[in-house]
């Protein structure tokens, strides 16, 4: 397709100048603020007069800050794993269903994606609370005497985050599984491989691009989910977004908050880069077959 270049008189493409307004808006209101954030993080005092790496050294030598970073990254991994284990069968079921059931599944999966995150989180407070469903069912069955404490626990937080972020995992998986040639599974079966073996040896590797894409989105969303972390996690557990917010808003320590943002930003970018490297490998693997 030679006609796809921007040669004069070419009617199939549009002038690159059309991107100018949005490009300018991004330069002023996106790139400049982030550059200023970076600039501020390189100062040792709150008035931003003394240059230095003090804020980064403070973060990286403080066991408390490092523990916050560590538990945030761990939380993301746990939520991503939960989403993958629960989300893959949904995508599998979707590809085997008729079109009516398919629409129903998509609507169910999309619902949390489009409902307000505060509403979704609030629902989990109702479910996990002292007088919530789980406690009242367990109590009426006589299994427990006093209500269990589930809200403000790591387990409760993972369940809530997994539900909130599930669509981000399921949608790319549906796309990826849909692209797998169904003849491959049949071939595997006729060559004598059982369903489980076909799943592990054929389906999982071929859907790897979708798995990687889903994991990237879920992970990035789970570690930045400020509202869910603060409402279901409670004050006992501190994660990077809340840490950043406290330093910026409550303590007005902007340079340190800026440094936390930059460290958090690079942590997220490193994870995304790691996943996309894995994704490229997986795609090569898939193509090779």
């Amino acid at each position: 397709m030679k006609s796809a270049t921007t040669a004069p008189g070419d009617v199939t493409s549009f002038s690159l100048g059309l991107a100018l307004p949005l490009g300018l808006a991004f330069a002023i209101f996106f790139v400049l603020p982030l550059a200023q954030l970076f600039y501020l993080s390189l100062h040792n005092d709150t008035a931003a007069t003394v240059w230095g790496l003090g804020q980064y050294i403070k973060f990286l030598t403080d066991p408390f800050s490092l523990a916050v970073l560590g538990s945030t990254l761990l939380l993301g991994a746990e939520v991503t794993l939960a989403c993958l284990v629960l989300g893959y069968p949904i995508a599998w079921l979707y590809q085997r269903s008729g079109s009516r059931v398919q629409t129903l599944i998509i609507m169910i999966v999309l619902l949390p994606l489009l409902t307000s995150v505060v509403v979704r989180t609030f629902a989990w407070i109702v479910i996990l609370g002292r007088q919530g469903i789980i406690n009242s069912v367990l109590q009426s069955l006589g299994l427990i005497g006093t209500p269990l404490r589930m809200i403000y626990t790591q387990g409760g937080l993972i369940a809530a985050l997994a539900q909130v972020q599930m669509p981000l995992m399921v949608l790319p998986l549906i796309t990826a599984i849909g692209r797998i040639d169904p003849n491959l599974s049949d071939a595997s079966a006729s060559l004598g491989a059982g369903s489980w073996r076909t799943f592990v040896k054929v389906m999982l590797p071929l859907s790897m691009p979708g798995i990687i894409a889903g994991c990237t989105l879920t992970y990035a969303a789970a570690i930045t989910a400020f509202i869910t972390q603060s409402l279901v996690g409670g004050g006992q557990m501190l994660f990077m977004p809340m840490y950043l917010y406290q330093q910026a808003s409550t303590l007005q320590n902007w340079p340190f908050a800026a440094a936390i943002s930059i460290i958090f930003l690079f942590a997220v970018l490193a994870i995304v880069a790691l996943f996309s490297t894995l994704g490229r490998r997986a795609r090569g693997y898939g193509d090779a077959r």
């Binding site: 603020p33 200023q36 930045t224 400020f226 950043l244 910026a248 800026a258 930059i262 930003l265 997220v268």
Partner: peptide, 17 residues
């Protein structure tokens, strides 16, 4: 890129800007 970057960092940056 706004889809990938932590939006909280952008929020703080925008406030400062």
């Amino acid at each position: 890129s706004p889809l990938v970057l932590p939006a909280l960092a952008f929020g703080l940056a925008a406030l400062m800007f």
